[in-house]
Design a protein around this nucleic acid. Structure first.
Lengths: 203, 203
DNA sequence: GTTCATAAATGTACCCGGTATGGTTTAGGC
DNA sequence: GCCTAAACCATACCGGGTACATTTATGAAC
């Protein structure tokens, strides 16, 4: 078998071409206003071929955007799950993420309610994995891991939404990253110490 | 004009008949296996009429399931938002909710991934309202209200999921209510005091 | 009771995302 | 060079949802 080069290269090429064409069309005319037929035609493939590469219309944009929070928790080493996650997202704000190549994608996503719902759903899908990872990492039982996973996921989703929104409304990547950094600390403080620290302000 | 009785009563009646027929069919054969055409036919109306009453297939089941967390916060009186919410859901566990009439609905929802995703989306839709209500109720600015709203919504969603899951797997409503009561306290403690209280167990 | 405006209900045809089928090209191992 | 299997394609189909033009029923005014 070996399945070597040319064939796979062509596949990869076709796949990339489809995704690129799709992103361009969505950016030009809006996600909802472009049909998958148009994408397929513009990419020079049949609709059925497109769906052989991508399982759904939104996956044309959302594929590869998935975050693996469960993996971060699993690979936390000596740290607590929350520490590991906090440091991961802290790094996202500080280090330059390769945001250049993602800007169009982010713009397209932010402009489409359907795609925004899609990323939320993707996050929700990870909630369960994260709950399992937390259940293994912590002594808590019952609903606690699920509650924690849900809250963490919600916080991350909110952070990402704010970040995306800024990027898609013209804020510079550097500034957006800086603000993200601040908000990561806020979000994880809220998770770790609760709303009481805010409302009481007893510090 | 006046729009008086008979007409509106018939409308209401038709609407209820459609919803009841739909719920029965979904329960018998599964949400995905029943088409809206079948529902419409079984209810004695045309498909387009069905969609005049319900904007989408899932609204046949989900209509009226919406929770109004924002309203709870708005009508909190002297209490903090979190206190108001905690007490509201505490009551849900203690007092008998009219769970009898909802059991079929809950069973249908719990059996369908599409509908479960739908209630999640509904919760997400309320997140924004809740964020606004919190922003008015608290001095916090910036991302804090959104983060809080997201975390609260996530916790409530998780509580509801666990509750639904028990009810749809045969746990008695009383027992499910009792467990819900315990978990409400856990969830709101987590929101209020953070994960640190769990992990450190410094109490 | 008849008439008239209006709102409800309908039939039909359509759009779009997604799938099933069955056939044709093409790459790669031998 | 041949053969298998993968990639591709055209077409037809399904189900949710909408547009449109038409009919049917209702309430009110006369």
């Amino acid at each position: 078998m070996m399945m070597s080069g040319l064939r796979e290269r062509k596949k990869e090429q076709t796949r990339r071409r489809i995704a690129e064409v799709a992103l361009r069309l969505f950016d030009e005319r809006g996600y909802d206003a472009v049909t998958v037929n148009e994408v397929a035609e513009a990419a020079g493939v049949a609709k059925v071929t497109l769906f052989a590469y991508f399982p759904s219309k939104d996956s044309l944009v959302l594929d590869g955007v998935k975050e693996d929070t469960a993996a971060i928790v699993a690979g936390r080493g000596e740290r607590t799950p929350l520490q590991a996650l906090r440091e991961h997202y802290r790094r996202m704000g500080r280090d330059e993420i390769d945001v250049g190549g993602l800007l169009t994608r982010i713009r397209v996503i932010s402009a489409s309610p359907a795609l925004l719902a899609g990323v939320q759903q993707a996050h929700m899908g990870q909630r369960e994995e994260l709950a399992c990872a937390l259940a293994e990492a912590l002594p808590e039982r019952g609903l606690a891991p699920r509650l924690m996973a849900a809250q963490i996921t919600a916080a991350i989703t909110t952070l990402q939404e704010a970040f995306f929104h800024r990027l898609s409304t013209g804020v510079s990547p550097e500034e957006a990253g800086r603000l993200l950094g601040e908000e990561v600390e806020l979000a994880f403080d809220l998770l770790e110490y609760g709303f009481a620290t805010l409302k009481g302000d007893k510090s």
